[in-house]
Simulated assay, not measured.
Amino acid sequence: MNLNLSHARALFHRELIETNTLSIDASGVASNADKSQQLSCELALSIARSLGASRGIGKLKAQSSGRLFECAVTSFLTRTFPLLTPLRPGDWDVQNVGSTRRGHFLSQFEPYRHLDELAEAITAKPALAAVLGNSYDISPDVLVVRQPISAQELGDSGIVVDGVASYSPLLARNQSSPIIHAVVSCKWTLRSDRAQNARSEALNLIRNRKGRTPHIVVVTGEPTPSRLSSLALGTGDIDTVYHFALPELIEATQASGNDEAMRTLDTLINGQRLRDIADLPLDLAI
């Protein structure tokens, strides 16, 4: 089956519009804008108009818009990444954790299966919680996972592992849990607390793994370059931040004539810290 990223991107935006996640209210304010900031309103409105959002639709509650944004990101990845198996072979699944998220959800997957044992130890000895804090409490939004493979599958590919490779989690004979390939945090808009939460979760994912670090990325609909920079600048925690409509944001920022916003956006893009949603499936294939 062929993959058209441009078409998949358009379907992603259509889903956001049809669910009213992206909309323009009667006063001309886009749903991802901060009404208290003129630049935010200006950029968000330009993006919403470019994508074909309707005017006169009331803004959803923050919790609803966040949940629907997660669903749209999940749908986009489901339509795209599994079709890249020629680049990244595997039996892939994209999961929106959503309402099932809980502190030890990741313990179902490699390389975080040990978190259940840690939770049990803390329950038995509550004093451990004071030492560990909540560093083991990770609640993801969207996961990309792959199933472990059988020795027969490897054999069919000309790879023989008889009598060796007794510990690799890639082999189903060694363990049966799905393996986390990527953790995707979804933030429809960004405020200082949301940026900090994303960074904290990323660091917890890195510190608590027993094995390879998964891809750790953030997808956002935030229109303001300064707020994007609060999350995207710097390295060591999040791989990359992906904007839901980066070309449209670039066009809107250039049209605004705001030199500082344009410089900030250029820094994020040229510094390889901010990319478009269409780049995400390809980056996950690396």
Rank of each mutant, 00 (worst) to 15 (best):
L3S: 03
L3P: 05
L5C: 03
H7Q: 15
H7M: 13
R9P: 02
A10C: 00
A10G: 03
L11I: 11
E15Q: 13
T19H: 04
T21P: 06
L22R: 08
S23A: 14
V29N: 08
S31Y: 01
N32R: 08
K35A: 13
C41S: 12
C41A: 10
L45K: 14
S46N: 10
I47N: 08
G56T: 11
L60P: 02
G66V: 05
C71L: 12
A72M: 02
F76C: 01
L84F: 01
S107E: 15
P111S: 01
E120W: 03
E120N: 11
E120R: 09
P126A: 01
G133F: 13
V142N: 11
V145T: 11
Q147C: 02
Q147L: 13
I149D: 15
G155T: 09
I159N: 00
V161P: 01
D162C: 06
P169K: 07
R173A: 15
N174Y: 03
Q175A: 14
S177W: 01
S177A: 10
I180L: 00
A182C: 12
V184R: 04
C186W: 04
K187D: 08
R191Y: 10
S200R: 15
N204D: 15
N208S: 08
I216R: 14
V218Q: 01
V219P: 00
G221Y: 10
P223Q: 04
S226P: 00
S230M: 11
G236D: 09
D237P: 03
D239Q: 13
T240I: 12
Y242W: 07
F244M: 14
L246P: 04
P247G: 05
S256E: 03
N258F: 04
E260A: 14
M262N: 10
L265F: 04
I269K: 05
N270T: 13
R273N: 11
A278C: 08
L282N: 07
D283A: 06
D283V: 05
